[in-house]
């Protein structure tokens, strides 16, 4: 069973996403901020992290993503960034996953449609085993 780590400070959202994912047969662990999330990722080595950007600090999620890439243990860990912010908080409107400065598998904008989320999650795991992603 795949384990997914959700890092987000919005309890209601975390709970609802957890329910969606567990219904689909995933195991879910959660963290309420970036620091806990990072430590949990290192400890438990989940198969995928759903990472919120804006938590205690505005760009906390990005910092966590970079730190995870710098740690040998978590270097290959797939990450999906889930964000409500764009240019209004100093980020480009149309940013996309990027090797250098945003090394993640996907960026989803809130509110994330659950079916879209599930599609992306499936794609990540399919890619991990080298299969064609679901469009």
């Amino acid at each position: 069973m795949k384990t997914i780590l959700i890092v987000d400070d919005d309890e209601a959202l975390v709970e609802s996403v957890t329910d969606v994912l567990t219904t689909e047969g995933y195991s879910v662990i959660t963290a309420a901020n970036g620091e806990i999330g990072y430590n949990m990722a290192v400890d438990k080595k989940p198969d995928l992290i759903l990472l919120d950007v804006m938590m205690t600090h505005d760009h906390e999620g990005f910092g966590v993503a970079k730190k995870l890439r710098q740690n040998d243990v978590t270097r290959k860990l797939p990450i999906i960034i889930i964000t409500g912010i764009r240019k209004a908080r100093g980020l480009p409107f149309g940013y996309e996953p990027d090797e250098d400065w945003l090394p993640v598998q996907a960026v989803l904008e809130k509110p994330v449609d659950p079916s879209a989320l599930l599609r992306h999650v499936k794609n990540v795991f399919l890619e991990a085993v080298g299969k064609q992603p679901v469009q």
């Binding site: 959202l13 969606v20 809130k110 509110p111």
Partner: peptide, 16 residues
């Protein structure tokens, strides 16, 4: 922007 997260929760449960 602040409405986004609550909408997310609603969307999730509606879906389920």
């Amino acid at each position: 922007h602040e409405l986004k997260s609550p909408i997310g929760s609603i969307l999730n449960y509606l879906y389920l």
